[in-house]
Design a protein around this nucleic acid. Sequence first.
RNA 1: GGUCCCUUCGUCUAGUCGGUUAGGACGCCAGCCUCUCAAGCUGGAAAUACGGGUUCGAGUCCCGUAGGGAUCACCA
Length: 551
Amino acid sequence: MSDCLKLANLLFPDIHETPEELMEKTFPARNLKQGAAVTRFAPSPTGFLHIGGVFASMAAERTAHLSDGVCILRIEDTDKKREMDDGVSIIVNGLADFGIRFDEGVHADGSESGDYGPYTQSKRRYPYHVFCKALVEKGLAYPCFCTAERLSEIRAEQEKNNVTPGYWGEYTEQCRNRSIEEIEELIKQGVPYVVRVKSPGKVGGRVKFRDIIRGDIEMEENFVDVVLLKSDGIPTYHFAHIVDDTLMRVTHVTRGEEWIASAPIHLQLFWLCGLKAPKYAHVPSIMKEDGGGKRKLSKRKDPEAAVSYFVEEGYPADAVMEYLLTIANSNFEDWRRQNKTAHYTTFPFALNKMSPSGALFDLAKLQSVSGTVISLMTAEQVLESVLAWAERYDKQLYDVLSADKQKALSIFSVDRGGNKPRKDIAKWNEVRAYISYFYDELREQSGEVLEIAAADQKAIIEKYLTVYSPDHDKDTWFATIKGMCEGLGFCPDVKQYKADPTGFKGHVGDVSSVIRVAVTGRKNTPDLHAVMTIMGKETVCARLNEYLERI
RNA sequence: GGUCCCUUCGUCUAGUCGGUUAGGACGCCAGCCUCUCAAGCUGGAAAUACGGGUUCGAGUCCCGUAGGGAUCACCA
């Protein structure tokens, strides 16, 4: 028996399977149609879902589903220190909120579905060890007994000498060349060790690979003996990536651009394992303007880094996704113009159309996209969404709206539908302010003051009270207001007034403004006739009289 | 610092082989429409980071500079 084989058996006495056998028996090739992409989103359960995570997972999900492929949600929980208790559910629910659906993987409660599991890395010890053993057997990996102290000494020395830091070169000699007896003894003594790859890379060597988004990239090859298995037997990200994406038959790896620097490690590991590397697409980070510069959206500094922000503000999930799509594929907006009512999932998203540079997150643009998305919804959809949001974030609004859904529907129907719907609402937390004057419970004293003499205002209201009828249709309603003008000293025709205002106190617009303020407390509202119709005679008259007393 | 990525209006970007009045969207401004505000329509201001080349001609090709970003762990 060769030393390598002996070492492999010493390190992994319980493993009796080869990677090839494992792949054949439990992780067979998928039966998918030609060109189907298998992608995955693989977050760590840190209890925080970053908007960049939604962006990356959207790229993965779209790529898979547009090609009739499979999208996997895998949890990378190999770092117990950063893990949070409900980390998994925060991520899974967060993604579900945005309509990102996975075909296989982990669910919010931690359960899993799919034939290529487990999908939680901490449960995949066995396959990692199978692959690691094979590497040891081939003399391509070895146990390293260096302590944390030794490692930092090495680092300090390298920094002093100005050479690339890392476990490589002369520093690897001791552990790389230990005899099998020596290793056996150290293990018997209980000395902790990691398993490192015996990197064949050379300083100055080059690797090339193609990134779907960035094109050809050439970098220095990896010559560091990176850790494969930590001392607790759990793999590092690098090794887990190789094993998992191979076994799960992932074809396209979409991940943050911060990984591009470690791509040479991954390419080397695939090669050493005798495996074909998947296609890579390194998606750009979403940036934030910061004092003239750009920086990555930060969890600490930027509330909008967390997806919970968008949920709390009440941006519809589709609106956030559409905004992200405008960043991801610039032709999305053209497509949207051509396909006004189509769902965004029918847009032919393409990884290779993504821009390689990180986009600044633009809340104003989100606002605009969202306003359009909402303007295209039916009143029923709006009400349903508002209620779902308000139930969690504005109980009073929820109660008021659900007390009379018909009224709520008619409010949301004002100027909705048709070619030019209003775009007053961009997120659900704006609804309260938008509709508050319809409800006595929500009404706030706005303090809006018109520049019209109190006496004239009084005269207008008093007169209007005598001619107002809730039965008037829009045209008669307006004709009635016009008809009041002459007697009150106002011009019934705006154009005429603008051409020559002499002799008038104002025009019909001013008259209706007085009524508007009296009825709604606002200078600006949607179509006043529609508003008054919804309110009903009782409320309208009450408000008019109330205004008379106040003025 | 080493390595890698990136760089067109304020923002997101379009820009096949080098020949464009450098296009669109958001935002901003103005006008029209209009009972107000939106919406809609029309128009406007607004960009090729800088410096060299190659070329009759460069946003586009080459070199350099600057700036921004990422990464260099038993973290992902």
